[in-house]
Design a protein around this nucleic acid. Structure first.
Lengths: 226, 226
DNA sequence: ACAAAAGTGTTCGGGTTACACCCATGG
DNA sequence: CCATGGGTGTAACCCGAACACTTTTGT
């Protein structure tokens, strides 16, 4: 049999929530093909590393972010998806808290930037397609896992959480029912601190009780937001 | 940069429902490593073919089955998962109607057989792990997509469907509520034919209205069985 | 005092759950 | 006529959906 020539890459769709908008992290490619196009961060997997290690490494090298949540998304392998070589890409879905990291282009990338999800540049390869799939995953997963908290700051307002849901799910939510539901799960800690957002009544800060959530999950609890 | 040496394979977890039991299709390996061990059907992806094409080809070559339902499951890439080469495997989840096909070992396989899910032989590589993940996917998906019908004969009894659900989900179901629920979806056609299973009152045959289901799905209908 | 955002309860209806008896056939 | 599996309806309960006014602050 002929020696197989397929290359293995990883790419990541990294979501961040900034200025009450959903954002994606993109890099500007330094090399052909698609030189100077914007693309998902990623690159070839090295001999000795696992797929997850490759993603984490590439994200660090290219963008300097550390992800808060990471899971495999899907693998793409159409023979012609890369015009030069046959490349199979295992893609990942990541969430970060943008305020925690200073993004900066490093080795392989000409530039790095956050783009709001509805003002995207043209993307290299099939990366737009991958992004669409990631958006679906995000929307879906938001309803049955508490991953919204991986996009918000450590301490957040209830209105932030609500805004995040309405923004990502693209539908309005009844404030009372939403609050009632979330609080009934007992996975939030209400802090004493209050924050005044300009005008209006100051709001309470909350924290996600991650450990308690995982314990509840073990016991069969299901997070579920319609 | 050193030329990347990672190989790309596909493997499939093929489920069939035989004798009121969930079965998996396995092959006996002809070549090292794990020569003569049982394993998931699969193999290296060829230069010119997509991942799906590779799975379909391998299944045909190794087992002679044609799948009824196929979706990507997960990709595995730990550096040491194959003792000889670095192999990344993109795995697939497939459903077949066992009565439709004559399985037979062909080119690459020493033997092929159905194994009931709770009497498995030792499996090669990390294939047991993959199988566990596929089982979870099956259990889960059964509740929100009508994939049970891809495991049953074209015409089936309601009791077959119910048995399939109780078997795979490993819990009992109230017959009346189950029937009411499924029938309310309007995705089954009740045939005139009746079948007598030995003793007892003869039962009605049903067919899954696939087209109607997909039309309903387009319109926002959600299949959902608790 | 007014504008802006936060916080809070109740009612209604639909869907899920629980539950038991009669029917049609074969032996 | 008995054993076996098939087929059917109703009542209770719970959860999700709808809905509007008061509170606290800044200007």
């Amino acid at each position: 049999m002929i020696q197989q020539q397929i290359k293995v890459a990883v790419d990541a769709v990294v979501f961040g929530y900034k200025d009450k908008q959903l954002n994606v992290l993109l890099i500007k490619r330094k090399v052909a093909p698609f030189k100077n196009s914007w693309a998902l961060p990623g690159g070839l997997v090295l001999e000795h590393e696992s797929l997850e290690e490759a993603v984490v490494r590439e994200l660090h090298e290219e963008t300097n972010v550390k992800v808060n949540y990471l899971e495999q998304l899907y693998s793409f392998g159409k023979p012609d998806r890369d015009p030069r070589n046959r490349v199979v890409s295992i893609t990942y879905f990541a969430l970060v808290k943008p305020e925690n990291y200073e993004i900066k282009a490093d080795t392989d990338a000409e530039d790095v930037a956050w783009f709001t999800i509805d003002r995207l540049p043209e993307l290299a390869f099939d990366h737009l397609h991958i992004l669409e799939i990631a958006k679906k995953r995000l929307k879906n997963k938001l309803t049955y896992e508490p991953i919204g908290f991986d996009l918000l700051a450590d301490k957040f307002l209830f209105s932030d959480l609500e805004k995040l849901y309405t923004t990502i799910l693209e539908k309005s939510i009844d404030r009372r029912n939403f609050r009632k539901k979330i609080l009934s799960f007992n996975i939030l800690k209400e802090l004493e601190e209050k924050v005044s957002e300009g005008r209006g009544r100051p709001a309470n800060l909350f924290q996600f009780k991650k450990k308690e959530y995982f314990k509840l999950k073990e016991e069969g609890f299901l997070f579920d937001i319609k």
